[in-house]
Amino acid sequence: MIAACDDFAAELVAYLDGELGDADRARIETHLGTCLACRRELEQLRRLRALIDGMRPLELSTDFADRTWQRLDPLPAHAPRRRARTVLWAAPTLAAAAALALVWYSQVARLGGAPTAPAPHSVAAAPRAHDANEHAVASRSEKEQAVAPRENEEGGAPRDVANANDVTEYPPDLVEHPELFLHLPVVRRLNRLEHFEEVRQYQNDQPLGQVSPGTAEVG
């Protein structure tokens, strides 16, 4: 094979593999017709292919399939497994949404006597002591909050109905159009409630996110 034939070296392998286009294959065959060295090279490549092709394929172990199925068996069928994943993901979300809806409905029911809500700034005369009580309740831990209604029932001062209806505790649009609130995603509902709480504290000249010390002892 002369130096010029080096250009054909890579082509010969692809030629044998049947990977050349028509034009390149014709060019190679034309060259092979005139070049003894390249014909010998091609013959050696054919022998090498025969050696590789002559390698006996490995037979599978007799228990290979059984061992494979044993590894697959612990895996649940893919379709039920997919459904199970969906349920696992959805369950806490649905529970949280249901809990939030329940809390909100209970609050709206408590406000049932106020069909139309005045603007927050128009009810500035509402007793501030009650606001402080609400602050304290809101700042308690969940356990304390769970105990609070029982305290009221067992002799603590019952909620002032008038104060309980103080709609300044809720954004007006939520009172007027509760159905819109239910259409909000859970996160946005929480954001709306938190935002309103901050606005209310700001109107009361309280630092945001803080409760005045005197309000923590409400029973």
Binding site: P57, L58, E59, L60, S61, F64, T68, R71, L72
Partner: peptide
């Protein structure tokens, strides 16, 4: 395809047990 994949893996790792284990991994 199991036999072809085992043989393909065998040409890489040169060990039947390891090749079969790799083929199992592939089908898993």
């Amino acid at each position: 395809h199991a036999r072809a994949i085992v043989n393909f893996a065998y040409n890489f790792v040169g060990s039947r047990p390891r090749a079969e284990e790799l083929a199992q991994d592939v089908f898993l």
